[in-house]
Write a protein that binds this DNA or RNA. Structure first.
Lengths: 170, 170
DNA sequence: TTGGAATGTCAACAAGGCTGACGTAAACTG
DNA sequence: CAGTTTACGTCAGCCTTGTTGACATTCCAA
């Protein structure tokens, strides 16, 4: 009952890494690693009645200052109502500033305030620290493979967004 | 204001992969990739009023038949109330069977029924299909790097659990 | 000027986390 | 044997973060 394309042990000589068992291990690794990945920021956020959703908003506003709500919406992949709830608290808490667009006044451009940038930095620091430790431990070759697998695993539209974000910053 | 240990561009000759920008890209890649990673099973689960929590329970019961509630609890890292809600629906829907322990009658050992195994297979199939496509696209070297970074990113206790699960199956 | 796009807001709801409290049965321990 | 601990289940209530649907406003563009 294995799905089409599945590879059983002994199926191919150089394809042992495509075994169902290997894939299963990869799935579990993603599950456990993502928990580690979010653990440190989550701990900080908990102390200030914010959640992961706030972190994500801060992260992407920081990376693309002046982004519009709609743009952020499509990056985060949530509904505007869901995002709006998060933005509302961030704005009223003085972490995010929302400026009416100059050309198109319907749009709101989002910026981090000093306080917002400070929190983003704090969250980013602990998350990067874990990432850096992992990267350093395994070396550049492994990191390159890591990045390539992740990219191949994204939905095509998300991969395009991801690549666009990267290019804008370099 | 960079945290201790951060690496700026030009800081070290062979350490360019530890740049804050590189780490930031890794963080975003994890975010986007995890969305892709869960997208296919989520779509199936939606049609049957189940969620990701049910998938996780099915996955780990399938991988370790006869596991106890406590063991599952510590793997999933949730509270017993949270897990119990999920298990209750899976049991009453006839996807999971709970048997009282033979040695220790306080324990409940969990097994997938035929129906449960069928659903697990269906969910696993689509998730592995994406994984396999990604793996095949990048090759075994990259996959090895991927796995090593993920493992290095886990919390130590989760890494131990992950390795134990692997060993039990091989 | 009218249609549609971008935004915001209200209401209601669900999944899936959490804490705290309580009960029961079984096992362990002094 | 008595008392404590362990494993599990459950009730109640709360939070975050996601969802839909409906509706108002503003304003660009045809």
């Amino acid at each position: 009952m294995a799905e089409p394309g599945s590879t059983q042990p002994g199926g191919g000589e150089t394809l042992l890494y495509l075994t169902d068992e290997q894939l299963r291990q990869g799935i579990e690794a993603m599950f456990f690693a993502y928990r580690g990945f979010t653990a440190d920021p989550d701990r900080i956020l908990q102390d200030m009645s914010y959640g992961r959703a706030h972190h994500r908003a801060l992260h992407f506003i920081n990376g693309a200052p002046g982004t519009t709500v709609n743009n952020l919406l499509s990056i985060l992949g949530v509904t505007k109502q869901s995002l709006n709830r998060v933005l509302r608290t961030l704005i009223s808490d003085g972490l995010v500033e929302s400026r009416v667009g100059r050309q198109d006044k319907r749009e709101r451009h989002l910026y981090l305030t000093e306080a917002g940038a400070a929190l983003e930095q704090q969250l980013s620091d602990v998350q990067r620290a874990r990432m850096r430790a992992a990267y350093r431990q395994v070396g550049p070759e492994a990191v390159s493979g890591f990045r390539r697998v992740l990219e191949a695993m994204m939905n095509p539209d998300m991969r395009r967004r991801y690549q666009t974000l990267r290019e804008k910053r370099t």
